[in-house]
Design a protein around this nucleic acid. Structure first.
Lengths: 342, 342
DNA sequence: TAGTTTTGTTCAAACGTTTAAACAAATATA
DNA sequence: TATATTTGTTTAAACGTTTGAACAAAACTA
């Protein structure tokens, strides 16, 4: 049961050398002879030696733990990002502590404190919807802990950033809908105080203008992008004397809600109303009709975020990364009015 | 930038006492005078002292980290369990390291090694689908690390267990379908080598017998319960000369695939074919028709799992917990043939 | 061959905390 | 008043590793 842990001291005794020699051998110190190194490695393996990371962390002032803060772990986008961060960092000897803010500012602050408390070597995070005050994130930075943001962040934050071109996404969507013959394109937006949603709104407005379409303020509604928001806002659109002929939602859940309402009203999609979502949640390809959406390259975002962290912690690079990936429009049934594309 | 960390030594110097006095004051040692305790607390607050958990962990041989292994973080069931474990344990001063096996045995083993390596104080896990060899889980136990399993586990494992009554779930489902007038009830099952799926199969068989229905071996198909499995197996059922009039899938994703196929074939649900899933994934209430399913009390499972761990680590209880919750049948449109229930 | 450099190892302190044992002072017991 | 107990604190070692400095031996240099 309570088997005594094997330490470098045990290895040292076994070989008649000192613990520090063992430590240096294990860490491949240039001054140690190759014979000692091999002997140590052999005994270590035989005794099934497991280094005590706590001790090493304490001495080196480095925990080899990286904290992650995501708004929700069960969103496909975030879980995929996390999975790839994990993958990349595990390969480099780091372990990952995942926390969720549940979109709550309070929880986010608590998470930050908890991560700083356990002395993570860095934090990779995406902002909660609620968050406007960045003082806790600045606290991370002022504590000297490397911070990498992804997807949701703010420009004022002096941190690495990995995200997609949200402005460009909206252009892709609107151009596609115009191409399908839509003339009155509505936007179920996120709240404009979040940078990414603001950018999507700007992209939407500019794309309308570029396509010679008027901007109708009634067709632009901000919300939390939940399913219920999608339903309510769609009901609101349907009650209009002059309905939109396309709806672009800044989130897939809102798009799903909108779709349900359309189906309940017996409105043919995309014939009478085309629909586009955002994020490529798995259900978008599963519902009928399948929902056109934007893919955000979650896997790549995860990898790049991890790599940005590694660059900082290994001191390869001092200056801040700012990586913007180009989004991909996945055209599916909900917006495919011309069959030509099929 | 690199602000020097405040240690108990600093507090000690400030007050002209020794570090050990400070430590004892902070840990509320009975022998320390109330005056010293207050003085220490005051200075600690003023200097913004943050205890070094690594040092404390090293000395106490306790990391205050708990490892979690889930098959997939983005399943609603698992993410909800995890959220509640986190909540419960954070309140007790523990932090949580979440890892995913992605249903892979290899990844699961790697995760176990990683968690043992960082010296977690305990592990809370649910088996990957692939896993049949439990040697890595036994390794956890033989390392003296408390292990709590939930949902998916095996009886031979000497660990705490929290789950639902899978056998009883099937009975609930079959009884309900019989009540709705179904006579040929098929089961899209999980692989019987996993205990929970075997139990669901047994419950299905026994419930048929109890209701005086024959067991048709063709109507019982094992699979990985993916969307594609659901589609393929439903196609197979539809091709039968004597089709089933109800399908009970042991997972919601398989149920969703089955539903899509039914809709594509224009078969009215539940009129010609009733459908029941398992797990209460959010989409089951969102699709049309909404899918009847089993709720597994994920929040409670998470809480109970955390509490089982705490009991072990605090030494309150030596013997193993085995907690089986009763499932809840959520009756929705996909199985509601009699409108009486509405 | 005396002096310098290199090589392989040991020494000792450090990381920040906890804790059993020791101790002096204050308080209680007889 | 002498002795035992309690109280509040200090001393010192420990947790397991890392690392700069020290050192002796071996290998070069001139």
């Amino acid at each position: 049961m309570g088997k005594k842990k094997v330490t470098i001291k045990d290895i040292a005794n076994e070989l008649g050398i000192t613990p520090s020699a063992v430590s240096k051998a294990l860490n491949n110190h240039p001054r140690m002879s190759i014979e000692t190194k091999n002997a140590v490695l052999k005994v270590a393996k035989r005794l099934n030696y497991q280094p005590n990371l706590l001790a090493s962390a304490l001495r080196k002032g480095k925990s080899n733990l990286v904290g992650i803060i995501v708004p929700r772990a069960h969103s496909n986008f975030f879980s995929s990002v996390v999975e790839n961060i994990e993958e990349t960092l595990n390969g480099k000897g780091y372990n990952v502590v995942i926390t969720q803010s549940n979109e709550s500012y309070r929880k986010e602050c608590k998470n930050i404190d908890a991560l700083l408390h356990i002395q993570v070597d860095g934090i990779i995070a995406s902002l909660a919807n609620e968050t406007v005050d960045l003082k806790y994130f600045n606290k991370i930075i002022s504590n000297g802990v490397p911070l990498v943001m992804f997807d949701r962040s703010e420009d004022v934050l002096k941190a690495d950033y990995i995200g997609i071109n949200d402005y460009g996404s909206s252009k892709l969507v609107v151009d596609h809908l115009v191409e399908q013959g839509c003339k009155r394109i509505a936007h179920i937006a996120g709240f404009a105080n979040t940078r990414i949603y603001k950018n999507r709104i700007e992209g939407y407005k500019d794309a309308l203008a570029e396509n010679g379409l008027p901007l109708d303020a009634d067709l632009l509604v901000e919300s939390k992008l939940t399913i219920k928001d999608g339903r309510d806002i769609m009901e609101h659109f349907l009650a209009m004397p002059e309905r939109p002929d396309a709806v672009y939602a800044a989130g897939d859940y809102a798009a799903l809600g909108a779709l349900q309402t359309l189906i309940e009203h017996g409105i043919p999609v995309p014939k009478e109303m085309a629909l586009v979502g955002f994020s490529n949640e798995p259900f978008t390809s599963l519902v009928a009709p399948s929902i056109t959406t934007i893919d955000q390259h979650s896997a790549q975002i995860g990898k790049l975020a991890a790599e940005s962290f590694l660059k900082k912690v290994e001191g390869t690079s001092e200056d801040l990364d700012k990586i913007i990936l180009e989004p991909e429009l996945l055209i599916r049934a909900s917006s495919m009015k011309s069959k030509a594309l099929a």
